[in-house]
Design a protein around this nucleic acid. Structure first.
Length: 814
RNA sequence: GCUCGGGUGGUGAAACCGGUAGACACAAGGGACUUAAAAUCCCUCGGGGGCAACCCCAUGCGGGUUCGAGUCCCGCCCCGAGCACCA
């Protein structure tokens, strides 16, 4: 007899070996044109930061990968692509900080990310990897801009940006800290610049309605809710107030309070301000306008401020009461929402109340609650509506808020003073960035022809590789300094033209990357029609809720435009979306300043990627996240060690069902059922617990059935792929465990034939009885009243009532 | 301020539709093996009482509904996330 050395589980050699085999055998590179049951398993692609993969990335990718591998074992051809979202302000700011060109930094970061992602063992198709910074990619980002342009969904207008007068550069909102530049601390002001916008507001209603369409969208409810709030649908009315020969148009959600509108407030930059201002007030008004403009965009909008404002000297007329209303300007009214002007109803709006109180303007009650009369004084704004009625409102007195609203809107329409309208909080998408690190917007300005789109054949508009990519005091993108790039003939008339020097928003890159994965090797188009038809929309998208509104909303919008242009066959790109939870460390958020950042490389080196993956999926419900504690890795690793030994000892001969212990057979079938259901619903933590239970049961009963062990290896494969591959091979499997069949179970064998039923007396559990499954009430009761503890609890009293839940519990009420 | 999500042992967490609260795992303590340590294996492990069989208390707090509540309803407190002068 030859000596067989004990097999030992060594992930540090085994994992790289399998990663290499997957690459050599092209295990994870599906044929996109011939797939029988295609399944597109998408996860949000990472931004390749200099720090490398963090635990949050690992968590998200593992959770998504587990699902993809599970679907593959269930017989689908799974496409699981990966790429890098490497353009944008994050990369650029980091490059500025370390003083290295992003064109040098990014490839380095991508290389590091690639190494780490491979070490984590994801089922990625590395033959189709992409980066948004490659000309072969952003050529199509620019093409996409042109699609929107030609669809009439791209337009230019002036909009405010944050401007640091010291750094002489545009700042993103997140670079403004408490009204000051994050780098130099100088007070930030706003500047008006011509920028490109996409008309996402044209789709507000559709974006909202599709959220309720179960056939198109099955999303995490929290994500859908964020989108609803972001779109912010409001019903109300637009009302015109006559003022000095023209009309001030306002939007209100409370037309029922029209009789309580005692003054008007315009945004400082409202176009009518000039005309309404009287000579005596002119100086004060211009000073206020100037001060408002000097504020940065962020602090201008932050609430809880003291109300400020200036009287213009002009008046408007309330169409309902006929009374004159002084017209004020104040920065609490925002130009970009509604019409930039409001009718102020101080009695029933908190902000208007504060303003009226401060400046001594009249406050009138027009809504009364059940306990109020028309004359009850208002000590604060009253915004309740339920059970309330209109007062001091002429012919409308006594009507409910709902009836009054309808009646006043009807009167406004009939009298020509206004109409009922729906407004959305959603703003058009500003895609211009006065920056370097992004795809140049493909537009050329010509004195004769205006803004001319770059012809498709001239794409990509390459981002020139300039050394000085810093923003400077010119106030325009650094690209404007690159003379030979900047000056270009007009594509329409051939006369000298100038390129658009802004680049597009990073979110445009990520709004379409999942189409590009399907055509990475096809150079001449962004959308591969047959593959788009076969693989999209995405059946399962997993990502972080931090992208609930921006990325996910923009991707939906882009799909709607592409569908209208006949480029794709759907308007909702993500059939299912699931948001994963957040990983914290020892109870608090991981951050560099706290020094509690976990380095995945170290974890993998110490415990192995499989143990790491198993641990991440085990620490809590995937959609809720969990708490990372280093000690916790021991459990999953021990589980793998034990399963490894079991594979080692497992019997050569396959035992038949009859030879196995009944308890084990039940446990085995119940586990297969539970693990399958849990994986379908991303209940990874409980699926792993069930596998651990089965392993414990096998060990306790000294059972090493080959049949069961094989099933366990398959079920553990989504979590611990390298481990499973090796075990599979040792059990005589070939090629890859991922071509195995997912285990099936016998429903009749998922429960034991004899079960324990709890016996309660007056709702308190006093004992249990073992009865045959499905036992009748009488039989259970007969056994129950023999239990000594139950007898004691009944204490000779008569049973008044019996509650019986078959196979679970009996409650005797005395 | 508004809108979501969440409060269960020393810790991470389980608990199907209202039906035996604490599965699974970590940590801790004790034991076996070992010259020793590591690893491994076995036992204990919400709190209190009792020699014991057992009994009482316990899912953030206070009420309620129910034969029965971690789960449902009402009112609070705390933590996390998002939105925020949106008319």
């Amino acid at each position: 007899m030859s000596y067989i050395p004990p097999m030992t589980y060594t992930p540090e050699t085994l994992e790289p070996m399998w990663q290499q085999r997957w690459a050599e055998r092209r295990t994870n590179e599906p044929d996109l044109d011939q797939a029988e049951k295609p399944f597109y398993n998408l996860m949000m692609f990472p931004y390749p930061s200099a720090e490398g993969l963090h635990v949050g990335n690992c968590y998200a990718f593992t959770g998504s990968d587990v699902y993809g591998r599970f679907m593959r074992l269930r017989g689908h051809t799974v496409f699981e692509p990966i790429g890098f979202d490497a353009f944008g302000i994050q990369s650029e700011n980091y490059a500025l900080k370390v003083g290295t060109h992003p064109g040098i930094l990014i490839p380095k970061n991508i290389k590091n990310f690639t190494r780490q992602l491979k070490a984590l063992g994801g089922m990625f198709d590395w033959s189709r990897v992409l980066s948004t910074t490659e000309p072969a990619y952003y050529r199509w980002t620019q093409w996409l801009f042109l699609q929107l342009y030609h669809a009439g969904k791209a337009y230019r207008k002036k909009a405010a940006v944050n401007w640091c007068p010291s750094c002489k550069t545009v700042l993103a909102n997140e670079q403004v800290i408490a009204g000051a530049c994050e780098r130099c601390g100088t007070a930030v002001e706003q500047r008006e610049l011509e920028q490109w916008f996409f008309k996402i507001t044209d789709y507000a209603e559709r974006l909202l309605q599709n959220l309720d369409d179960q056939t198109k969208m099955d999303w995490s409810s929290s994500t859908a809710l964020s989108q609803r709030n972001w779109i912010g649908r409001n019903t109300g009315a637009e009302i015109d107030f006559a003022a000095g020969g023209s009309a001030i148009r306002v939007f209100t959600t409370r037309p029922d309070t029209l009789f309580g509108a005692t003054f008007m407030v315009l945004a400082p930059e409202h176009p009518l301000v000039d005309r309404l201002t009287t000579p005596e007030q002119r100086a004060a008004v211009s000073a206020y306008q100037k001060a408002a403009a000097a504020q940065d965009v962020v602090s201008r909008k932050v609430g809880d401020k003291d109300k400020t404002g200036v009287f213009t000297g002009g008046h408007a007329q309330n169409p309902a009461t006929g009374k004159p209303m002084p017209v004020w300007i104040a920065d609490y009214v925002l130009m970009e929402y509604g019409t930039g002007a409001i009718m102020a109803v101080p009695g029933h709006d908190e902000r208007d109340f504060a303003f009226a109180t401060k400046f001594g303007l009249p406050i009138v009650r027009v809504i009364a609650g059940p306990a109020d009369s028309a004359a009850t004084p208002l000590t604060e704004a009253m915004s309740e509506t339920t059970g309330c009625r209109l007062v001091n409102s002429g012919a409308y007195d006594g009507q409910s808020v709902a009836d009054g609203t309808a009646a006043i809107v009807a009167w406004l329409e009939q009298a020509g003073h206004g109409k009922g309208v729906i407004k959305y909080r959603l703003h058009d998408w500003c895609i211009s960035r006065q920056r370097y690190w992004g795809p140049p917007i493909p537009i050329i300005y010509c004195d004769a022809c205006g803004a001319v789109p770059v012809p498709e054949r001239d794409l990509p508009v390459l981002l020139p590789n300039i050394d000085d990519f810093r923003p400077d005091d010119s106030g325009v993108s650094p690209l404007a300094r690159h003379q030979e790039w900047y000056h270009v003939p007009c594509p329409a008339c051939g006369k000298p033209g100038r390129r658009e020097t802004d680049v597009s928003d990073n979110f445009l890159d990520s709004a379409w990357y999942f189409y590009r994965y399907l055509s990475t090797e096809v150079g001449d188009r962004a959308l591969h029609p047959d593959r788009v038809k076969a693989w999209l929309p995405v059946p399962m998208y997993i990502g972080g809720n931090e992208h609930a509104v921006l990325h996910l909303m923009y991707s939906r919008f882009i799909a709607m435009v592409l569908q209208e242009r006949g480029q794709i066959h759907f308007d909702e790109p993500f059939r299912r979306f699931r948001a994963h939870g957040l990983i914290v460390k020892d109870g608090s958020k991981m951050s560099k300043s706290k020094g509690n950042v976990v380095n995945p490389d170290e974890i993998i080196a110490r415990w192995g990627a499989d143990a790491f993956r198993l641990f991440l999926m085990f620490i809590g419900p995937f959609e809720e996240g969990g708490d990372f504690r280093d000690a916790g890795l021991a459990g999953p690793r021990r589980f793998l060690d034990r399963l490894w030994d079991l594979v080692d000892q497992c019997e050569r001969r396959t035992l038949t069902g009859e030879e196995l212990h009944r308890d084990i057979v039940v446990k085995w079938n119940a586990t297969k059922k539970k693990v399958t259901h849990d994986l379908e619903s991303l209940g990874y933590n409980t699926a792993i617990a069930a596998l651990m239970e089965l392993l414990n049961a096998l060990r306790d009963s000294n059972c090493s059935s080959r049949m069961i062990v094989k099933d366990m290896v398959i079920m553990v494969a989504p979590f611990a792929p390298h481990f499973a591959e090796e075990c599979w091979e040792r059990l005589g499997g070939r090629d890859t465990v991922f071509q195995a069949q997912w285990p099936t179970w016998d429903e009749a064998l998922t429960q034991d034939s004899v079960i324990e039923v709890a016996v309660q007396v007056n709702g308190k559990t006093r004992g249990t009885v073992r009865v045959a499954r499905g036992a009748k009430e009488e039989a259970v009761q007969q056994r129950a009243i023999q239990d000594p503890a139950v007898v004691r609890a009944i204490d000779g009293r008569a049973i008044r009532k019996v509650i019986f839940v078959p196979d679970r519990l009996m409650n005797l009420v005395v």
